[in-house]
Amino acid sequence: MADITSLEDAISGLIRDGDTVAMEGFTHLIPFAAGHQVIRSGKKGLTAIRLTPDLIYDQLIGMNCVGKLIFSWGGNPGVGSLHRFRDAVQQGWPAPLKIEEHSHADLANAYVAGASGLPFAVLRGYAGCDLPKVNPVIKKITCPFTGEELSAVPSLRPDVTVIHAQQADRQGNIMIWGITGVQKEAVLAAKRVIVTVEEVIDEFDARANAVLLPHWVIDAVCLEPGGSYPSYAMGYYERENDFYKSWDSISRDREVFKAWMRRHVLNTNNFFEFTRSVSAAKNKEDLHG
């Protein structure tokens, strides 16, 4: 049963140090508000799963919340590298980061298996690819019917999945549209679920096959308008591509990064204050400060 609650309470009550946490959203609906609250609450030693770590995990890694990363594409989309992720892998800063690396198809299948209550997923892939040499959980399996050699990977069962969606109703049912990535599978694979939403409304205007998640698979629903900024929420606001571009210089240097995180995330109480802090800096053309 979903409680409609504050994000602060949801994060402190549902995520524990050392948990395996999936914060999903494929370019669209990335749960930045929740990511920031994880940083503010000082969570440590998380195993963080995400197909595309994006800026949200760059921030979590740079703030030393993550001990291990399970991922399939670690870049700043359309811009270049994730500098905090790279620094952690190449230089061990702020702490050594264990990585478990897959492909998108593999992780997507692994969430499906998790949501389906199966121990592993099967896919056609990885032949001639070096990933199985560096990731021992990618195994070969022979089809019992045709003899074809395929790849098997363990299912993903996060302790906690966190997503951002457009709408909840007053019972805590969730509606989400546009690019929906792996969110449905990541929610149904998880033991506990936190959903932040743009809006809480009385009744959905939904066709029968819209993507709905019922309140009884969700533990906490938190109203966080703008909560996926600088990614986007279809129907609400667009992706701020400029923020992704400026992140390149904010994140490149350790001290600049730390100062930025202190000023805009640690020294603000919530995401609303964060967005005000960033837009005030932007108006002064001082986004890096």
């Binding site: 989309p77 997507a108 499906v112 896919l123 929906t180 990535g181 599978e185 279809m234």
Partner: peptide, 24 residues
Amino acid sequence: PLSIGDGELAETADIVVSTPEIFR
């Protein structure tokens, strides 16, 4: 598009499916 999931792609697509579906 700047990213693989820009809003422009979803708005102009014939259909939008989940990540597991696109790969499977």
